[in-house]
């Protein structure tokens, strides 16, 4: 799976939790889930669980710690996928 495919899947995952539509429409690697997309911090757990289901990976606690932005989430997904 390449980067654009991962980012497209990620966008589909976060969409239901987004509170700032404009930031979502302009999403880049530098977008922050909480400060930019204004995803409720409790919903970030749902994002993580959805990522785990969608990509069939497990995001361990250490990886989860780096989660708040798109760039780190992408790196985590890419790393986990490469380990499979």
């Amino acid at each position: 799976m390449n980067k654009p495919e991962i980012i497209e899947k990620l966008k589909t995952i976060v969409k239901p939790y987004v509170k700032n539509q404009e930031a979502f429409d302009n999403l880049t690697e530098n977008t922050d889930f909480i400060t930019d997309l204004q995803i409720n911090s409790a919903n970030l757990v749902d994002v993580i669980l959805d990522i785990e289901e969608e990509f069939s990976i497990i995001i361990d606690n250490q990886s989860m710690e780096r989660m708040p932005d798109v760039k780190s989430a992408m790196e985590i997904i890419e790393t986990k996928l490469s380990e499979m």
Binding site: N40, A42, N43, V45, D46, I48, L49, M64
Partner: peptide
């Protein structure tokens, strides 16, 4: 709103937080 936004009974939810 929390009731509407979050399903804390979802599998894995409590274990993550």
């Amino acid at each position: 709103l929390a009731q509407k936004e979050s399903n804390w009974k979802r599998k894995g939810f409590l274990d993550k937080i």
